[in-house]
Design a binder for these strands. Structure first.
Lengths: 208, 208
DNA sequence: GAAGCATTCAAACACGTGTTTGAATGCAAG
DNA sequence: CTTGCATTCAAACACGTGTTTGAATGCTTC
């Protein structure tokens, strides 16, 4: 039993890396099984088929992903925004764990499958709602559309460093994302965004 | 001769749509040829092989893509930034032609191939340089790293609406990108960014 | 030890893929 | 008309793929 669970786990890990690196279609069952030291038939036995394995990989990966840091509820809005950005950027730029979590997500982005719905519902929506709440405090009385746009601006500056990686690498080969640099980026995004949000608030007031 | 050029053109267009929708690997030569009303062997004859067709599609697509609007050289920085954002957002959110240009690009992003290098050199780098120049004027004396980060913040807010589309659709099903909404987004991004850049400039001054 | 069960294994199957072939076609020049 | 050339075509080839099979293995329980 523990042995069966072992091949199951190895299969999930190997599949995670493979699916992230090559995509669902390009990744081969044979390659995954060989990497996991398992027989090809193992995926049928444990997961039904290739798609079942893919689904399982997602659930497995994001179940064990570290939950976002709990927000400091007492702190002023600006501080909470700083924390959110730093936390989110950290989770996006490798600094944590198996680097392929983010890649899997990115693939779902350009090639959405049924799992994206699940992902949005369980992980993305709550996260976005946090930011929208912070933005809402900074744009008091702002219409929902304005809040959506403003929250998007903050989130966009973070995810950019993930999804545009291939271009960034080619554009600025020397730009390395060390822990220090990530901290500097987080600080920049926070300063930039707080000022931007204040300006948006002013624009909303004057438009009224 | 005109007939040969015709199948060649039809092949390029069908391939563009297919590659964009399904990706290089998933798109099939048979499917493309059938869509183009051509024989399977046509791709070998005209482009050598599938990869040759893919390369040709990129060159064809981006050669005929409308060039970015010429900047108003005399206008103040803030106006030039506004123009740049509006222009870039417009080119990103369908409003212009064959919607698959952007999708092809997005695919290269998560699955970079050799053509991405060409794309960065000929299209992305000049575009980014324009924005970096504008940002440079607004952050006088700012270190290159700060300018990179700031320019990234502006660009990020634009490309977000393209690459995160699948998530945005699921998060805010009612959010439609009409011409009016795109204009509103452009205005928001400009206001947000100008304020953010001023704050960054202040941060740089005070850190000195 | 025997029976039952979960798991693993090597081999094969069925199918879709990119590619190649060699003949057929049509058109322009001699 | 004939020749030469570019292009198209149906058919086949070679290969990698996900999937399935039925037997072998090992472990637990009686």
């Amino acid at each position: 039993m523990t042995e069966a669970d072992d091949t199951k786990r190895k299969l999930l890990e190997a599949a995670g890396a493979m699916f992230a690196r090559d995509g669902f279609r390009a990744a081969t069952v044979r390659g995954i099984c060989s990497e996991a030291g398992a027989n090809v038939a193992a995926v049928k036995y444990h997961f039904g088929d290739k798609l079942g394995l893919y689904r399982a990989v997602f659930r497995h990966a994001f179940t064990f992903a570290p939950p976002p840091r709990a927000p400091r509820t007492g702190a002023p809005v600006a501080e909470r925004l700083r924390d959110w950005v730093a936390d989110f950027l950290g989770s996006i730029l490798d600094l944590g764990r198996p680097a392929w979590h983010a890649r899997l997500m990115a693939r779902e982005m350009t090639d959405p499958s049924e799992v994206l719905d699940e992902m949005v519902a369980t992980h993305i929506r709550p996260r976005f709602a946090e930011m929208a709440a912070i933005v809402g405090e900074l744009l008091p009385g702002g219409p929902p559309a304005a809040i959506r746009r403003a929250a998007s601006s903050v989130v966009a500056q973070c995810v950019f460093y993930h999804h545009a990686r291939p271009v960034i690498t080619r554009l600025h080969p020397a730009w390395k994302f060390t822990a220090d640099e990530v901290a500097a980026i987080a600080e920049h995004v926070a300063v930039f965004s707080l000022a931007g949000l204040r300006a948006s608030a002013a624009a909303i007031r004057s438009a009224r």
